[in-house]
Nucleic acid binder design. Sequence first.
RNA 1: GCCCCCGUAGCUCAGUGGACAGAGCGGCCGCCUUCUAAGCGGAUGGUCGCAGGUUCGAACCCUGCCGGGGGCGCCA
Length: 584
Amino acid sequence: MPGLVPLVEAAFAPLFDQLRPGAPALVRVSQRADYQVDGALPLAKALGRPPREVAEEVLAKAWEGDLAALCEKAEVAGPGFINLTVSAEAMAAQLAVLRPGASGLGAPRPDRTLRVVVDYGGPNAAKQMHVGHLRSSIIGDAIVRMLEAVGHEVVRENHIGDWGANFGMLVEHLVDLGEDRAAHELAMGDLEGFYQAARAAYEADPGFAERARARVVMLQSGEPGTMALWRSLVDASVNHFDQDFHRLGVKLSRDDVVGESYYNPMLDRVVSELSEAGLLVESDGALCVFPPGFANRDGAPLPLIVRNSAGGYTYAATDLAAVRDRTERLRADLVVYVVGLPQSQHLAMVFEVARMAGWLTRGEQLVHVGFGNVLGPDGKMFRTRQGGTVKLSELLAEAEERARSVVVGRTGGTAQDLAGDVDEVVRAVGTGAIKYADLSTDRVRDYRFDWDRMLSLDGNTAPYIQYAHARVLSIFRRAGEATRLAERSGDFLPPADPEERELAKALLSFGEAFADAVDGFAPHKLCGYLFDLASQFTRFYEKCPVLNAPAADLVRSRLALCAATGAVLATGLDLLGIQAPERM
RNA sequence: GCCCCCGUAGCUCAGUGGACAGAGCGGCCGCCUUCUAAGCGGAUGGUCGCAGGUUCGAACCCUGCCGGGGGCGCCA
């Protein structure tokens, strides 16, 4: 596997372990050298020896081993840090190992392939997708892509809200409109309007409300006519979701829809299993489980209500059934819930109840990958100027419109280079900007939606990285050869210029950045890396002529650096679900 | 009242135990005869919310407090 940190790690880890089993080497990139090894400090404390002495000893042994082949300089500094300067030859040798694709570029290979179910806490049927659903789709998509790239087997499940009391009112509204007109309206895409109209009727007309309630009963009893109407509503919604997902460019489709209704047949069994496990308690007419560690307003135990006093199953029951289904039928080793942070307590309770019920016998992990809200530029919840929710389709349309004016309006006309690809570039830049803005900050924070910033070519943005990538390809177009990374791998000279050296280091750090991102379900770590790589490349590009380099072998070597950069940028962006246009 | 998340430069954010805390934007000063200047370089800018504690070492871990957001039994 390419990469420098693993080599340094390999050179030092056994030595620390030898002095004290389990003692880590603590290898990190350094600001004072290339890498630093910090393990001597905590180890010295444990051994009761001076830290510098321990560091000297470890370094001497390492140097006798493989380190001399890797580094041109190694010294103990400060209280006991080991600073390493990698030789240019070793860098060139490592660069030559790079191959196309995530794993060839250093992606980690886990010791066990996991079966992972990723739950996108989906939108509600009969409602429009809006910004609130953006984060789940975008973050979930990036996580799925990363997990797949390291070799895990991923099952996507879009857990849409396609069941519940609301559907009584929606079906009844559909009946009032007449099926034909309703079908037309739903096909036109005005799901929000349909929902609002149903809601309004429910609140204003007691007769309608009564019929809606009766309709809920018919729905729950599976009355065929009602079911058919319900199905048509759900289908219409899924059609729209499918379009939005396609347009967003996420790996989600109608095939991944596993709505709440799917679990209806399993709910009785879930409840009886909980009952057999002795977990079920009746309280005020509702069936509850009281997992320890959760308290309500008054300090009393907080229930997870699986069936309400009216005899209806709650979403807690559905979520528990989903855990059962995923671990049992799908044999999931890991279930990742890409769901907003406000659900954290609910999910924690569901996870705990699943554990108490004895459903997790194979060491299955249930993980909540939570995220914050989308805020407008003013720092408040993101809304339209009129105060309504922003529809996803309109948001994407605006992104492309803004991206177009940025792309086409640049430098007076070099956009002609784009030829007929303008639409494609505009799409890649627009949706890429939105996705990257979302992914590039720690997901647990609320994130501020700001058109100007996300579409800027300066700073940690998608367009900046895409631009760096396009510049790489521009060099190859000019060189008039379709150079591929694999064909270039023998051409690296030891990097001599500081800009070459820094670029090489960045290229060889992909593996660590990717591993950190995937381990922590933290796409922003990959974003930060890509921004750093793009920055290093741009500096290199400014200082080091490629095609006009003074010697033929230097031209080839720099072309090889460019090829590797292009490969890492394109691969990294792809892992985030972002396209890398050839020209901008 | 209890629980969870957040609080780092004017703004937006990285960094969550290791050596003087980083980046982008905005403002200031420079750089296009030469592969895309949609760019690059430089200078400036911080009591890491506050106070204790643990540690050889704390923005990072622990406790308390302050500020912002969210959650806390029959909606999902």
